[in-house]
Amino acid sequence: MINFLSWVLLLSGCFCVLISAIGLIRMPDLFTRMHAAGVGDTLGAILVIAGLMLQAGPTLLLAKLVLIMFFLLFTGPTACHALAKAALAGGEKPLLDDNNQ
C-alpha cells in the first residue's frame, strides 16, 4: 500500500518537473518562464520528496527530507524575487498582453 502511494507520488512529481522544464523551453519571455520554473520548484519538489518520505519511514532520514523540502520552499520564492528584481533593474522589459496597458 505504502509502496503504491510512493509510486504515485514519485511519478506525479516527475511529471510536474518534466512539464516545468517543457514550460522553460516553450514560454516566450523571462517573466513567463519564471512562472513555469515555479511549477517544478514547488509542486514537483514537494511530490518527489513526499514519495521519498514514505519510503524512509519514521527515522532521522525523514527529518532530513523534511528539512530539504522546507528549505526548497523558503529559498525558491526568494531566489525568484531576487531574479525578477535584478532583471527589472537591468532594463529587462516584461512582455505584456496588448489589451492590457
Binding site: C16, I19, F31, G38, V39, D97
Partner: peptide, 18 residues
Amino acid sequence: NLQVMKIILYPKLPISPR
C-alpha cells in the same frame, strides 16, 4: 500549479501576461 501546467501543455499557449 495545476492551472499553470494546463497552460503549458495547451498547444496554443493561452497566456496573457500582465
